[in-house]
Simulated scan of single mutants.
Amino acid sequence: MRVNSTFKGLSDDTKKDILFFNLPIVKPNNKNISLGCQLTLKSSTTTGDLIIEMSKQIGTTKKGELVLPTFDHKNKCSFTLSPFESAKIVKGIENFKPGKLEFAHKNAKNPKFINIIFSVYKENPQMQVEVNAKNGETPIRYSIYLDESEIEVFKEFLKSSYSPIYKKLYIEGLYDSEFEDRFSAYEERFKAMETKLNGFLEYVKTSSKADKEFKQKVLELLSK
């Protein structure tokens, strides 16, 4: 069985850092809490697909002299984009001009409408990610504005999500990790079996209770 050398010698934590990313972009608004939002870019641990999560701000908490935002992660909005949707957004970013891209995910488990809105604020480009969904029967809106550097990071994550090179890296890395985990498990089992077998062999060699003919047959069997 071939084991790819890409991840050879790396610790499990390092492999996870490479394969399974989790990048939050936090935009609190402590003056108007309803406008605060957190957007998280993360990878699926089963498929490697890019998952986008959005959580609304619901309040603040004090930590010493700091006032930190708190978010409603329990009622977060999660979605993925198809390779073509991702590529369309990437092209929109690369050819930046005010405008709007709309994606209707009507067939999703929780239907939602996703808008990517390009605009300029104080001569700086910005991009709004807006999702209109439902919490049960209650309409709920998630919205966050990204600045120029955050837009660039968002773009690169989208590009990697439909890159064959990333998919290949993910599959090979996951394969190597699973192989090593299985190999380690089997190695432990074989060691345990070897210990038991050696104990039995020692018993056969030294026990006065074991029949001489039986001893001979066991030793012949083990020598094959």
Rank of each mutant, 00 (worst) to 15 (best):
V67C: 08
G99D: 05
K109N: 10
M193V: 06
K91C: 12
E156T: 15
K42I: 07
E220D: 07
L158G: 08
R182D: 03
D147R: 01
Y170F: 15
G36P: 03
T47W: 02
S160A: 07
K74H: 07
K168L: 11
R182E: 11
T45R: 10
P164R: 02
E53N: 10
D147N: 07
E123W: 00
A104V: 14
L158E: 12
N22R: 15
G36Y: 04
I58A: 00
A185D: 13
I165N: 07
T45M: 04
F21Y: 11
D72S: 01
Y162R: 02
K8P: 01
V131Q: 09
G199K: 06
G92W: 09
R2S: 07
S149M: 00
T138N: 11
D12Q: 10
D181T: 11
P69L: 00
F20C: 08
L201F: 08
K106R: 12
E102Y: 15
L219M: 13
K159I: 08
E130Y: 12
E130T: 15
L81K: 00
G36L: 04
L219C: 05
K212M: 11
E65R: 01
S86T: 02
T46V: 07
G48Y: 02
K88Q: 13
E130W: 07
N107E: 15
T80P: 01
E156V: 05
N4K: 04
F71H: 01
D181P: 03
G64D: 03
L219N: 09
P24L: 04
S11F: 04
G9H: 07
E65H: 01
M193T: 09
E188M: 08
N135I: 13
S177A: 08
S55T: 08
E178H: 12
